[in-house]
Amino acid sequence: MIALIHISILQRRKVRLIDLGMQLGNHAVTLVVAIMPKADGRIGVFLQVQPHSETTLPSGLKLSVLLESGETRLEIEARSDSSGRGKDKSIDLRFSPPPGTCFHVRVMRDNVTVSEDFVA
């Protein structure tokens, strides 16, 4: 399966395809990353993980933002319903770092981790 990482920086759009199907079992996901300037001189960052071909994310999938030091700054985990199946259609994080800040985005499930580095 193919997972799509969509990066929107200012008004330009750039798309990258990364094969995550084998690494996350049968669950392919889409990571949406939008980096936008804000009026106060800071940068707005929006991160979202969506299922690629299913209706919900697998339970236990985590989306994290890490600092350059490796410290986890923000994290959210997909939830499960009473029968243990995923119930979230997406998970997202928002934050506003100063321009030029380096950060790492990590999508993780079980022992599988996919990371990308970004500069705000």
Rank of each mutant, 00 (worst) to 15 (best):
K14G: 04
P58L: 03
G60W: 00
K62C: 09
R85L: 13
L93A: 05
F118M: 09
V45A: 04
S90R: 06
D40P: 03
G100H: 05
S90N: 14
S96H: 14
S115F: 08
R85G: 11
D110M: 10
L4V: 08
P98Y: 08
V105I: 07
P99Y: 08
E54W: 06
I18A: 11
L31V: 10
T56F: 15
T55I: 12
S69C: 14
G25Q: 03
S82Y: 00
S8G: 15
L63C: 10
N26F: 05
L17G: 06
V119L: 10
I9Y: 10
V119G: 05
R12A: 07
I35Y: 03
L57D: 00
H104E: 09
R42E: 01
R12T: 15
S64H: 05
G25N: 07
D117Y: 14
L57Y: 04
G84A: 01
P37W: 02
V15S: 06
R106W: 05
Q48H: 04
R109M: 02
K38L: 15
L10D: 15
L10R: 15
L4H: 08
D88F: 06
S59G: 15
P97W: 15
G86I: 07
F103D: 02
C102F: 08
V114R: 01
G41N: 05
V33W: 01
G44N: 09
R85T: 10
V49I: 12
E54Y: 11
C102N: 08
I5C: 05
G41E: 03
N111G: 06
L24W: 03
M108Q: 13
E77Q: 11
A120P: 01
L10F: 04
R79G: 08
L66T: 03
A3L: 09
S64V: 09
G41C: 02
S90F: 13
D81V: 11
D88K: 05
R12L: 11
L20C: 07
C102E: 07
L61H: 01
K87E: 07
R94D: 00
S115V: 14
K38S: 13
